[in-house]
Every structure is written in C-alpha cells, then in structure tokens.
Computed example of a mutant assay.
Amino acid sequence: MNNNDIVVKTENLVKVLSNVEVIKGCNMTVRQGSIYGFLGANGAGKTTIFKILTGLLTPSAGKVEVLGMDVTVNRDKILRNIGSIIEVPIFYEHLSAEENLSLHLAYLNREEVDISKALEKVGLANTGSQPVSKFSLGMRQRLGIARALVHQPKLLILDEPINGLDPSGIRDMRKLFLDLVENYGMTILISSHILSEIEQIADTVSIIVDGVVKGEATLSDIKKQYPSGIEEFYFEMTNRGVKIV
C-alpha cells in the first residue's frame, strides 16, 4: 500500500484518562476514497479515538497521523481539511441552519463555499430562517452532517451520524455518504453500533472492544470468512477476542 493512499493511521495508540488506560495499543489504517466502519459497543472507545484524531484529546502514547500529518503538531492544518461530528452537535440555537453554517465557514476562513448546496444534500433546503431551536432531533443531526461536509473536506469523521434519524433519513444519509466518496473523492471514517448500515456502505470494518481494536478487515474478506456477514464477524471479535488477519 502506498503511504500516499493512507488518510488515517494510528500505531500503538494509547490514551489514559483519570489514571485509566481507555485506549490500549490501537492500530488503524484508513485508505483514501474508502468508507471505514468503526464498530463497538457504547463505551468501547470509539468517541475517544475520534477526539484524538480531531485534536480534541492528546494521545498519551503512540503515533497518530491524519492526512499524512502528525495530529499533535499540525492540528490547525488538519482541521481545515476534515469535517466531523463528535457526540451531539452543538449549534447557535437562535440562528438558522444557513447562519450556523456561515459562521462555521467564517471560522475556517472558507466563506466562498455554497451553503445552500450542503443544506440541499442533507434535506434541509427549505428551512429558511427557522431557528435551530425549532429543529427536531433528526433535523439537528442532518445539520450536523451538513456542517461536517460544507467545506468539502478530504476526510469526514462521523461519530454515530444516523442517531435520531428515521428510516427515510437513514436511507438518505446512506446514499449521501456513498455519493461523497464516489463523486467527491472524500474518505469517510464512521462509527456506529448499527451493524446493518455499516454493512451496506463500508469497504473496511474494524471492531473495538474495551479500548482494543480486535479486528480490522475488508468487507469482502469478512464475507468470505463469515458467511452470515458482519454480524457474525462482530460477535466473533467481541465475544472471543479473536484477532482476524
């Protein structure tokens, strides 16, 4: 694999919080132009790793590179080229969707971007001047996704992005993620506990259990080894701690 094809790479990543090692020797490799599904139970460590990748937390040990750059050294440059949802999106409640995105772009110094196109992509084209305080949970999640992708980043890091969406919204986001990869050249790192959704879009899947990545494999290899698909792979990794190679 050419190093230029690697968008995210962690080597022996460790994170200690309150004297507890919550991430233990994590190794991940996310290739350019792929959708990487990051699966694990609540509390397994998915969000902690995403916070490290976006510079919100500093690694205790190990190596972390995003877009070929060390996260601890080049955080600002990396942030201009990635979009993310980490935990519950926070907005300026009294402002509209468009105004929230406009402020976000000003912060990134990217005012020339087409906000209306981003809102259309996530199904919020007709919200007008409605304040975000009036938005449903699903609408807020859609806006969070719009904010993550509005500046056309090279990498999207999405922590449980379909939380709060109804079946129609989940289908819309599935189509959107595939479109962003196929037609805009983005790379997507997405965490979820909804195995069936990841199975429909991911190229590569990894399983994290109690801060340890137990398995990382392409979806095609998983299907060869596990005829029942990703669910069988997931429970094999979580229940037995077997590592797939």
Rank of each mutant, 00 (worst) to 15 (best):
residue 63 K to I: 14
residue 64 V to D: 01
residue 66 V to W: 01
residue 66 V to N: 03
residue 66 V to D: 01
residue 68 G to N: 04
residue 70 D to G: 00
residue 70 D to C: 07
residue 70 D to E: 07
residue 71 V to K: 09
residue 73 V to E: 13
residue 73 V to S: 14
residue 73 V to L: 14
residue 74 N to V: 00
residue 75 R to A: 07
residue 78 I to G: 00
residue 79 L to P: 00
residue 81 N to R: 10
residue 83 G to I: 10
residue 83 G to N: 06
residue 84 S to L: 07
residue 84 S to D: 07
residue 85 I to N: 05
residue 87 E to I: 07
residue 88 V to S: 14
residue 88 V to E: 13
residue 89 P to S: 00
residue 90 I to S: 06
residue 90 I to R: 09
residue 92 Y to T: 13
residue 92 Y to G: 09
residue 92 Y to W: 10
residue 93 E to I: 14
residue 93 E to Y: 06
residue 94 H to W: 09
residue 95 L to A: 09
residue 97 A to Q: 06
residue 98 E to R: 15
residue 101 L to P: 02
residue 102 S to E: 13
residue 103 L to F: 07
residue 105 L to N: 04
residue 106 A to W: 10
residue 106 A to V: 09
residue 108 L to C: 02
residue 108 L to E: 03
residue 111 E to D: 12
residue 112 E to T: 08
residue 112 E to F: 02
residue 112 E to D: 11
residue 113 V to W: 12
residue 113 V to P: 03
residue 114 D to R: 08
residue 115 I to T: 11
residue 116 S to N: 14
residue 117 K to S: 08
residue 118 A to K: 06
residue 119 L to P: 10
residue 120 E to V: 12
residue 121 K to S: 15
residue 121 K to E: 12
residue 122 V to W: 11
residue 122 V to C: 14
residue 126 N to H: 13
residue 128 G to P: 08
residue 128 G to M: 13
residue 129 S to N: 14
residue 130 Q to R: 15
residue 132 V to E: 03
residue 134 K to I: 04
residue 137 L to E: 00
residue 140 R to S: 05
residue 141 Q to P: 07
residue 141 Q to C: 07
residue 141 Q to N: 06
residue 141 Q to E: 03
residue 143 L to A: 04
residue 143 L to S: 01
residue 143 L to K: 02
residue 144 G to T: 02
residue 144 G to S: 04
residue 148 A to K: 06
residue 149 L to S: 01
residue 149 L to R: 00
residue 151 H to C: 05
